[in-house]
Write a protein that binds this DNA or RNA. Structure first.
Lengths: 224, 224
DNA sequence: ACCTCAACCGGACCGTGGTCCACTTCGTGT
DNA sequence: ACACGAAGTGGACCACGGTCCGGTTGAGGT
């Protein structure tokens, strides 16, 4: 079985990383060398968190529960993960990395090989499915409004979308467009459309493709 | 001076309300008849909240502060407003109503009279400016992800945008498009673009007009 | 083997949002 | 005037996220 809590490392794709040397958490792939006991506790905490979340839903798991379950003091939890959001992010990072691997270096149409527009289509579907699958975690982690958009994961998605837009020769302000596109894929919005408004997944995906089309000039643009 | 905390009532515009009879908080214009002492406490609480927020920023005002300042028990605050978000929403409702009045029945191009596309342009700018002006409150109130999109204010904006899209003969899934457009105007996104990324207001507004164009076929669409 | 010290640990403690419920007060019908 | 019930009140209480700090431990140097 794969080790979910291994040190951070991301599948490399030179295209996307271009201009992202400043993305501090990404490149070196080095974890700051945890002490043996600390590493052990970290693993136990994450395992306990996963177990409890599976049992009763992450929303019903407190930090004390996790500390207690791991036989560890509360301070240890917060020293390691900073705060609740930090722990959740770490829990998601395994899945997040799978997604990243898929669109950075997986098979087409999500990965390299397909046309940029096809890749954008696939990217939208993948993200929607991905976030929907783990939506309790994402919703729980999103409590902090600002932090999401400053996370490495978000930056990576942003860079990827921006790249594909450029490859697709999208006209306009691609930086802004990338943000807009990711806005459509936000967990809270998608979840609202699907769960609250009861829209079908197909409809939301069609909306995404339509959106991509309108920005990549895939249909009906008069190039004059 | 205008009374900021008067019973709820919204400028009527038959066009927009169309199909919104179910929007329970809107139509009757009736407040559920508060007892005299309760009404007095409500007003005092809101006044105190406004004062404290002005003094030290809403983020540094606790519910206890407000209760204490109004000379009232904590339970009273929560009975009246439900929770912190509820109080903030009520604080915002005054400004919110001004915005609503402006786009429902104010002068063009924001209000009726201009072309739908012009009105959409103006709507975007107005919302961005409005939310930016009160962004501490909106950011504070947004802590709950789901609730925003179920609020009457959001529904109203949604209905308005949907109507303008229809008037502009926008092709496509207008329901979805309306959600997408409002997504671009979300406080957290706009604030991130402006404050964190340092984009200019003009740029963000241009992005909005571009977005509207692409959905109303204002430019470059090949009809036929 | 021992010393040293930064990293780590734990759990008491705190602030804040939110609940609870015995008691009080307002408005209404008679 | 008065009684009565619904609505309102207040503050003790709780849960949970997060901080603090005195004590502990493990890894590298000698």
């Amino acid at each position: 079985m794969t080790e979910p809590f291994a040190p951070f490392s991301v599948p490399q794709d030179r295209d996307v990383l271009e201009g992202f040397a400043d993305l501090a958490l990404l490149p070196t792939g080095e974890t700051p060398q945890l002490r043996a006991d600390a590493a052990r506790n970290r693993t136990r905490l994450l395992e306990v968190a996963v177990r409890l979340a599976a049992e009763r839903g992450i929303a019903n798991v407190t930090m004390d529960d996790i500390a207690l379950g791991a036989g560890v003091g509360k301070g240890t939890v917060f020293r390691r993960f900073g705060d609740r959001t930090g722990l959740l992010v770490e829990l998601l990072s395994h899945h997040e990395k799978q997604l990243q691997a898929a669109f950075l270096s997986g098979p087409p149409p999500l990965g390299p090989g397909a046309s940029p527009v096809e890749r954008l289509y696939a990217f939208g579907s993948a993200v929607i499915l991905h976030e929907h699958a783990h939506r309790d975690f994402y919703l729980e982690a999103h409590i902090e409004p600002g932090r999401r958009r400053t996370s490495p994961a978000y930056h990576l998605r942003l860079a990827h979308v921006r790249l594909l837009l450029r490859e697709a020769r999208a006209d306009g302000d691609n930086e802004l467009t990338a943000h807009l596109l990711l806005g459509y894929l936000e967990t809270v919005l998608v979840d609202h459309l699907l769960s609250v408004l009861g829209m079908s997944l197909e409809r939301v995906e069609a909306g995404w493709r339509d959106l991509v089309d309108r920005y990549t000039g895939e249909r009906g643009r008069c190039t004059g």
